[in-house]
């Protein structure tokens, strides 16, 4: 066993705190809600407006939150025309396109009339929404210094969490805003059908990621142990975020949809936080491993 004297401030501060986890959560939620809104717009135009409005608001909130996390937020414009090999640079472009497009789309379908414009914006927005949803995972998966992040599982996991949390937020808003509308019931029903399968896919992909991390070698295993040792993981991600919602949806008991969707949202945020936090314990190990393997 290795004991470490902790005397460097920077090595033991969380470099990215919970604000980044919330940004990833909100950005992905917005992208997922946008994709769900595009799906709903084929059947019920009126109900799709709600989802279309979640997207830019959530993504912009997340972006604002992450700006407060920057050391020099007023210089953030440098990141747009900076270094093209950086995923963060791509992210500024992707999100910079997604937020206005989603906002314009929401405005267009609310005002009505311009069908062709709405359709074009919808296609562009859906394309960028997939990129936004995967980007937060890609940002982490290209870092070899943080072994548990450096996995091809992370971008698809990020995408599937975007879809489930996006639909969850959509369902909550639908239940609150459109109470009396018969179309809302229909929308909720069809969204819930997809949602169950997405939650299943999320469970399968999550288990695949955990198994992969467990067998991926000693340096990943060290960070994997941090994940499975954390109560947030077991309570937030596994029980509240995955098992309970799936059980509730399968049992078809009259449990409120708002509660189920809130559980999924909690699970989504907990997943981002646990994964982010697990990456921050590799530096001393990295330095020592060549000398004391």
């Amino acid at each position: 066993m290795m004991d470490i004297f902790k005397y460097n401030l920077n090595d033991f501060m969380p470099l990215w705190d919970i604000r980044v986890a919330i940004d990833q959560f909100l950005g992905a939620l917005g992208a997922g809600a946008f994709l769900a809104a595009i799906y709903v717009s084929h059947y019920h135009k009126r109900e799709s407006k709600i989802g279309a409005f979640i997207a830019p608001v959530a993504a912009a909130l997340g972006l604002l939150l992450v700006m407060t996390e920057l050391g020099k937020p007023f210089r953030a414009i440098y990141a747009v025309l900076g270094n093209p090999t950086s995923i963060l640079n791509w992210g500024t472009w992707i999100q910079g396109i997604f937020i206005p497009v989603a906002f314009l789309y929401a405005i267009t379908i609310t005002v009505g009339g311009k069908e062709r414009l709405a359709k074009t914006l919808g296609i562009v927005g859906a394309f960028v929404a997939v990129l936004v949803a995967s980007y937060h995972g890609l940002l982490m998966s290209v870092i070899p210094a943080r072994p548990i992040w450096n996995s091809a599982h992370i971008p698809p996991l990020s995408l599937i969490y975007a879809l489930t949390t996006g639909i969850a937020a959509y369902l909550i808003l639908l239940s609150i805003v459109e109470k009396r509308d018969p179309d809302a019931e229909d929308t909720k029903k069809s969204l819930t059908h997809i949602w169950i399968w997405l939650l299943f896919a999320q469970l399968v992909m999550g288990v695949a990621f955990m198994l992969n991390s467990y067998w991926a070698g000693s340096d990943v295993l060290r960070q994997f142990k941090i994940v499975v040792g954390s109560p947030i993981f077991w309570v937030g991600v596994v029980i509240l975020g995955m098992i309970l919602p799936i059980l509730i949806l399968l049992s078809k008991k009259p449990v409120s949809l708002i509660l189920t969707a809130s559980l999924v949202l909690i699970g989504g945020l907990a997943f981002r936080y646990v994964l982010l936090d697990a990456g921050f314990a590799s530096i001393v190990y990295n330095i020592s491993v060549d000398f004391f393997p």
């Binding site: 460097n8 920077n10 090595d11 501060m13 470099l15 990215w16 996390e69 920057l70 050391g71 020099k72 937020p73 210089r75 953030a76 440098y78 990141a79 950086s86 963060l88 940002l139 870092i143 070899p144 210094a145 943080r146 990456g279 590799s282 530096i283 001393v284 990295n286 330095i287």
Partner: peptide
């Protein structure tokens, strides 16, 4: 530098200080 700390996350040696 905008202080995003992405470089500190990418550095395997912890050489960067914020």
């Amino acid at each position: 530098c905008i202080g995003c700390k992405y470089c500190m996350i990418a550095c395997p040696y912890g050489a960067r200080q914020y």
